[in-house]
């Protein structure tokens, strides 16, 4: 068994019913576990952009890319290494915090350049963007307090320079 790595895939797909299901099936049939999946409008309305991070072996990945590329609705399916792309993720974290600890939490937020987007007597909602690793680190530190809810968008990527995503 070759070793399982996390891969970044970007798929440009015609916005048609069933397109997402077909792509998801292609991954699951080959035993790829999708870690995050972001679907959003492409530059023009008829197309969608999907960013998928998935774990699996190299040979299997090549098959998945070819199988996805051959789907009738798919225009392009590409893998990108971390170096080739700008990668971003957004997280919203709701932390239970009373006035005694608010300062410490805000200090952590400040360190990660997170914004306070909601504040109530017993909780605070922070918004942070950046690499997935940076968000991991922030969530980790906030784990000292009680995290009531966590919502992350999943990673989106865009190829640098002249390269196509």
């Amino acid at each position: 068994m070759s070793k399982e790595m996390t891969h970044n895939l970007s798929i440009y797909v015609a916005n048609r019913p069933g397109a997402l299901a077909r792509i998801a099936q292609t991954f699951s049939r080959r035993g790829f576990n999708i870690e995050s999946l972001v679907v959003s409008a492409g530059a023009t309305g008829d197309f969608s952009r999907m960013t998928i991070t998935a774990k699996g072996d190299e040979a299997g990945l090549e098959q998945v890319i070819m199988q996805c590329s051959k789907l009738v609705d798919v225009l392009a399916c590409r893998e990108h290494t971390d170096e080739e792309v700008v990668a971003r993720e957004l997280a919203l974290v709701k932390v239970a915090v009373d006035s005694a600890h608010r300062g410490e939490v805000l200090q952590i937020a400040d360190h990660f350049r997170a914004k306070t987007v909601d504040l109530s007597e017993n909780s605070i909602v922070l918004e942070a963007t950046g690499s997935s690793e940076k968000l991991d680190a922030m969530v980790n530190l906030l784990g000292k307090y009680k995290i009531i809810e966590l919502v992350r968008t999943g990673k989106v990527i865009m190829a640098r320079g002249a390269r196509e995503t």
């Binding site: 019913p17 069933g18 299901a21 099936q25 009738v72």
Partner: peptide, 16 residues
């Protein structure tokens, strides 16, 4: 049937 047959068709349509 659209979803039932998805892995065994080259393509499929549900006409709206």
């Amino acid at each position: 049937i659209f979803n039932l047959t998805m892995p065994i068709v080259k393509h499929s349509y549900l006409v709206k």
